[in-house]
Simulated scan of single mutants.
Amino acid sequence: MMIFNTRFGRLFFFSTEPQTCSYLPDREAVMLFADPNKVIDTDTYARLIEYGFRRSGDNVYRPHCRGCNACIPVRIPVAEFTPDRAQRRAWRDNQDLTVTLTKTEFGPQHIDIYHRYQVARHDGRVGERDSREQLEFLRSRFINTSSLEYHLDDRLVMVSVIDQLPQGLSAVYTFYETGDPDISRRSLGTFGVLRLIEECRQRDLPWLYLGYWIAESDKMSYKSRYRPLHAYRDGRWELVDLTAKEPAEGTQTL
């Protein structure tokens, strides 16, 4: 059991029982969770994210799997990032979008876009009620969370939920309109990450945290397209040597 000192006192961590991994189904996953009875505020979470933790709602966790280190926490050093040709094109093609910083609140329009995104990208069987419940896990009562909303004219086409930390932004989750060929050609997932990098620059924040990079998972491997990339391994952050493989676009974070 891990112990972490906070301004609210000692924070204890507990591991879950093994279960089937949602990203690599042939493996078992074990999670290390912070005590759910303790308040984890922005400053505490800012420290925990430096040790590879993420959040879902108010629950803070980190993979703690036996014999597997596939889930690698990654972050982009904002000052050093240089877009490639495809990323420059995605940036150029979306300059007609209006981006607004808002509170993380979800109405019918958000639920509709999120539901269609989940059906198209992840699980065709997900119901609208499940979508409403899942959206609540993007919010937090204690951490400084907000959303970037992207509009094409008056039409909401993408939402990025972010946590602002003293040292950077953490990308919680991005979802966008699917099924419209004109929207699909815009590479919104790529533009969403680029816009968060720009948001960090505007706020003079050095890091954009992208959650877990899983090279063997198509859903999570896209993060290797943003270079340079730092990874948390063996108790420290270090520059990773990325392969030349160009995985499919995605936007999911953890």
Score class of each variant (00 low, 15 high):
Tyr23Val: 13
Asp35Gln: 10
Ala46Tyr: 00
Phe33Cys: 13
Phe53Val: 07
Val39Ala: 03
Asp35Trp: 13
Phe53Gly: 00
Met31Phe: 15
Asn37Glu: 15
Ala29Lys: 08
Ala46Lys: 02
Phe53Ser: 02
Tyr23Cys: 04
Ile49Arg: 12
Arg47Ser: 07
Ile49Cys: 03
Arg27Cys: 02
Ile40Ser: 02
Asn37Pro: 00
Leu32Ser: 06
Val39Tyr: 10
Tyr45Gln: 12
Ile40Met: 03
Ala46Arg: 02
Phe53Thr: 02
Ile49His: 06
Ala46Ile: 00
Asp41Met: 00
Asn37Ala: 09
Pro36His: 12
Asn37Tyr: 15
Ile40Cys: 01
Pro36Leu: 03
Arg27Asn: 05
Val30Ala: 07
Leu32Phe: 14
Ala34Asp: 06
Thr44Tyr: 05
Gly52Asp: 12
Leu24Met: 10
Met31Asn: 11
Pro36Ile: 11
Lys38Tyr: 13
Ser22Ala: 12
Leu24Glu: 08
Tyr23Trp: 09
Asp41Trp: 04
Glu50Asp: 10
Asp26Thr: 14
Thr44Asp: 13
Tyr51Gln: 12
Met31Glu: 13
Met31Ala: 04
Ser22Gln: 02
Thr42Trp: 05
Ser22Cys: 00
Thr44Ser: 09
Tyr23Glu: 09
Ile49Gln: 11
Asp26Met: 00
Tyr23Gly: 04
Ala34Val: 04
Leu24Asn: 06
Ile40Asn: 05
Leu24Thr: 07
Lys38Asp: 10
Glu28His: 09
Leu32Gln: 11
Ile40Tyr: 04
Asp43Pro: 00
Ala46Gln: 01
Val30Arg: 14
Lys38Ser: 15
Ile40His: 03
Cys21Asn: 10
Ala29Ile: 10
Tyr23Ala: 03
Leu24Phe: 04
Thr44Ala: 03
Leu32His: 06
Glu50Lys: 14
Arg47His: 10
Thr44Arg: 01
Ser22Ile: 09
Pro36Ser: 06
Ile49Val: 15
Leu48Trp: 04
Arg27Gln: 13
Pro25Leu: 00
Asp41His: 08
Pro25Met: 01
Asp43Ser: 08
Leu32Glu: 14
Thr42Gln: 05
Ala29Phe: 00
Asp35Lys: 10
Thr44Lys: 01
Phe53Asp: 02
Met31Tyr: 15
Glu50Leu: 13
Val30Trp: 05
Leu24Lys: 13
Leu48Gly: 00
Ser22His: 05
Gly52Glu: 12
Tyr23His: 08
Ala34Cys: 08
Val39Trp: 08
Ile40Gly: 04
Gly52Gln: 11
Thr44Gly: 02
Thr42Ser: 06
Tyr51Met: 13
